[in-house]
Amino acid sequence: MPITVPAYGKEAAGRLASMADMTADDGALRRFLHGLPGVDAVGLQARAATLGTRSIKTTAKAYAIDLAISMIDLTTLEGADTPGKVRALCAKALLPDPTDRTAPRVAAVCVYPDMVATAKEALGGSGIQVASVATAFPAGRVALPVKLADTRDAVAAGADEIDMVIDRGAFLSGRYMAVFEEIKAVKEACVRAGGTSQSETGGGSAAHLKVIFETGELQTYDNVRRASWLAMLAGADFIKTSTGKVAVNATPPVTLLMLEAVRDFHESTGVQVGVKPAGGIRTTKDAVKYLVMVNETLGERWLTADWFRFGASSLLNDLLMQRQKLSTGRYSGPDYVTVD
């Protein structure tokens, strides 16, 4: 297996170039994506269900809760968002449990592009990333120049991470090259003025790109596998399940499938890509199931906030309540966490 390099590192481009013949033109890309093995749906669901039955208790549970908190992209994506609400969310990101300062910080705060500056200011140099959705989230139904402008605007405002949506219409109608080129173009737009697209530190000059598939709209598991490979070949740093704005969001089988795609991509190219399930993960129990899946599929290397994230808002409160239960022995209640 090739030596592992991060997807945002400067060596990743070279590794992707080795796959260039698969992405040379529309026909080659289609042949490659349709040549991927079909997904055994029953087997996938059974595997995801089995991994969900692991019993994680006591010290392992405490570790899992703290790990899950540190992996959260604390999210507010409402039309009714105000600077005040974003600042409140940032305060929560910095100090999730004011009654217990040992609770870890979350990984990032995820907002709409016009709130990036507010979030950046509130978080200061705390090390918590600011993620911004872009490319006309959640539908993505605007022309490419508008998507790129949206992205550049968020990056200029200081976003450390960009969550883009793919054009599901183009993907479902088989125009894979259009989706591929769009992801590449957005990746270019993530470069900060004066920087390069491949940074050495991983922070610095380019925002990390998360590519949202909206798996609830992709219809089949085969499509999810194809979309995962397509995005990773185009240079995604993270692949993300959903926007949280449609009926079906992250599910364990879909996430497992994406984790497997990341594993296979890593085995063939050595490029490490992150995964972010988003939407519908509300309880500690669910979060721990996802962590088990990551550990079993990708191993410990991915069990950090750099390579696995939860897109969630209400999950944090449940994690904090469980944390309080573990530390005090009493069941906690919603009166003891914030109302977001």
């Binding site: 309080q324 009493r330 919603p334």
Partner: peptide
């Protein structure tokens, strides 16, 4: 016992 200690009761 857990009901008496429960913070949300």
């Amino acid at each position: 016992t857990p009901l008496a200690a429960h913070q949300d009761v």
